[in-house]
Design a protein around this nucleic acid. Structure first.
Lengths: 139, 139
DNA sequence: CTTGACCGTGTACTAAGGTACAGGGTCTAT
DNA sequence: ATAGACCCTGTACCTTAGTACACGGTCAAG
């Protein structure tokens, strides 16, 4: 028998809803060690706290910012004060920064290409009749 | 018996090498209809030309620019003068442009966060001792 | 005491963009 | 005439970030 004591602990459904993800995702994060194993009821039901909600939301924010789950796992090493995962953290941040700068440069190039492409089309409805072919095939 | 006549036609290995991808990728692109079915020798060996090299390199360039294979398939509709794939091409370009602009904005946000993160660290070797935790957990 | 809403585990499936085999045919040189 | 280097098809496997489902246990209400 499990009682929700003044909103401090939740079973997986309520927890997942609070996090804005679904249950399977929570179990998936646990398997990937992004979430530590939660305490359980006698029946084996997982019990979560508000701190866990913060953690999942943090992972989701990192994800929105373009970090993969394994990168988030690395960053969580800082939060968890885990020396192993903190090894080379500065270099990790530096590498990620470089990567992002390259991505931005690539996207900007693509953006201007698309704009150019649009401008070259005399009739918006007949893009296949504009100089797109030559433009695309010969850089 | 197959003779390479003055470098105009290649079997899959040489072709793949010229394109900078491997054989399986070529067959994969064929299956995905990014490459049309090539002519074959009597033994059934695929034969490619320099035009095919240009096409694969084009696909690779699009990929570097952030286009997925299915998007490249769409764009190749223009090259191939395929009316079906050319349907709604202008809208496609427009949509892609918006998408890229959003991606650029997101990446810029992440970039400045990473820069901020680096600057907050007094000692480059001890990032786990800088205010990263609070910064990460409470936006 | 049984129904329905939960929870558990484990496995399979998805998309994208390939990679890696297995089992067989072909071609060239020795 | 046979080894070695190619080629073929088909299928399975990989990663990432989950989703879906089957089968079974738990618990509160009627």
């Amino acid at each position: 028998m499990f009682i929700e004591v003044n909103n401090l602990s939740y079973r997986i459904s309520v927890f997942a809803e609070k996090c804005g993800v679904n249950k399977e995702t929570i179990r998936y994060y646990e398997k990937k060690e992004l979430l530590k194993e939660p305490i359980r009821t006698d029946a084996g039901y997982r019990i979560y706290t508000d701190d866990d909600v913060k953690r999942v939301k943090f992972i989701k924010r990192l994800q929105d910012l373009g970090f993969s789950l394994s990168e988030s796992y690395k960053l969580l090493g800082v939060v968890d004060n885990d020396n192993v995962r903190c090894q080379g953290m500065y270099e990790f941040v530096l590498r990620k920064e470089k990567e992002i700068q390259k991505q931005i440069a690539d996207l900007k190039r693509t953006e201007s290409m698309l704009q150019d492409l649009k401008n070259r089309c005399p009739d918006q409805k007949a893009i296949h009749q504009c100089p797109i072919i030559e433009w695309l095939v010969f850089d």
